[in-house]
């Protein structure tokens, strides 16, 4: 569904991504693993062109990403995005936040009058039911907990009826329990609607648990690609250069946190 070929992004002379290629099939969860600052966010944003790539090609279902305004909006409407800080509009209701996922499908003047079709509302409520938050539909988004807000973010992405979802560190600021809930919701959505999910993570443990395949990125380059079972100490060493192999033997939860710590130190 998503094909990235030889993608390169430079900021001035500074390379952020170099020659990155990957594919995500429909219904597959591809986790991009790497330290902060490795270029994971840039990679995601180059796909729906929130960031303009410097070179290389991105295709969705075989079609190159359009560069004209209308074509790009059409493409974005088919690609849901989930953010680290969920990026909900804080003082709108949960339902309206999910309805913003339908905006691209409705005439602008109706949406400006805050008018939504029955169909759009029922799609939104459906998506909220999927993340088990239908009861909170009329609450203000910022009244919800961090994990709940992120699940509203998933509902918003699903309301787009997307063919692909780009998730940018969706659980980075969540406690382990909420994180697992969010990733489970994401996984189920991918399976049920055969959505191609490209998900950035920096917790190795979650990648092992939820990914179908893993791509490791370090300093803007792909340094690993394979199934979670192939992610061994040597591979981790390439993704997180300088990371002590001893961390592999720590208990699972601890390990995720340590990788986060080390990656922060490395990126400085």
């Amino acid at each position: 569904m998503i094909e990235v070929h030889a993608l390169t992004k430079r900021y001035g002379q500074l390379p952020a991504l170099t020659d990155v290629s990957l594919r995500v099939a429909a219904g597959e969860i591809l986790v991009v693993l790497g330290p902060s600052g490795a270029g994971k966010s840039t990679l995601l944003r180059c796909i729906n062109r929130l960031i303009e790539p410097s070179a290389g090609e991105v295709r969705m279902a075989g079609v190159p990403i359009p560069t004209d305004r209308a074509g790009l909006r059409q493409l974005r409407s088919e690609v849901g995005m989930i953010f680290q800080d969920h990026n909900l509009v804080p003082n709108l209701s949960v339902l309206k936040n999910v309805l913003t996922g339908r905006l691209s499908h409705m005439p602008a003047w109706l949406s400006l009058l805050q008018l939504f079709t029955d169909e759009d509302v029922s799609i939104a409520l459906d998506c909220l039911r999927r993340v088990d938050l239908e009861a909170s539909a009329w609450k203000r988004a910022d009244r919800l907990s961090g994990g709940q807000q992120q699940r509203v973010g998933i509902a918003r992405a699903l309301a787009q009826r997307p063919r692909a979802i780009l998730a940018d560190e969706p659980v980075a600021s969540l406690d382990p329990q909420s994180a697992r809930l969010v990733l489970t919701d994401l996984q189920r959505a991918a399976r049920d609607f055969s959505i191609a999910v490209l998900c950035n993570l920096h917790q190795v443990q979650y990648a092992r648990e939820f990914a179908d395949r893993i791509v490791g990125i370090s300093a803007g380059r792909v340094v690993f690609e394979g199934t979670p079972s192939k992610l061994d100490t040597a591979a981790l060493g390439r993704i997180y250069p300088g990371l002590d192999s001893a961390i592999e033997h720590e208990p699972p939860l601890q390990r995720g946190a340590d990788v986060l710590q080390v990656s922060k130190v490395l990126s400085q």
Partner: peptide, 21 residues
């Protein structure tokens, strides 16, 4: 906050819709 604005752009909403929502 820039975050929600980026999120709305990512849904394919038009410029007016991004401002309005």
């Amino acid at each position: 906050d820039r975050g929600p604005i980026e999120a709305l752009r990512a849904t394919g909403a038009s410029a007016t819709q991004v401002v309005a929502f």
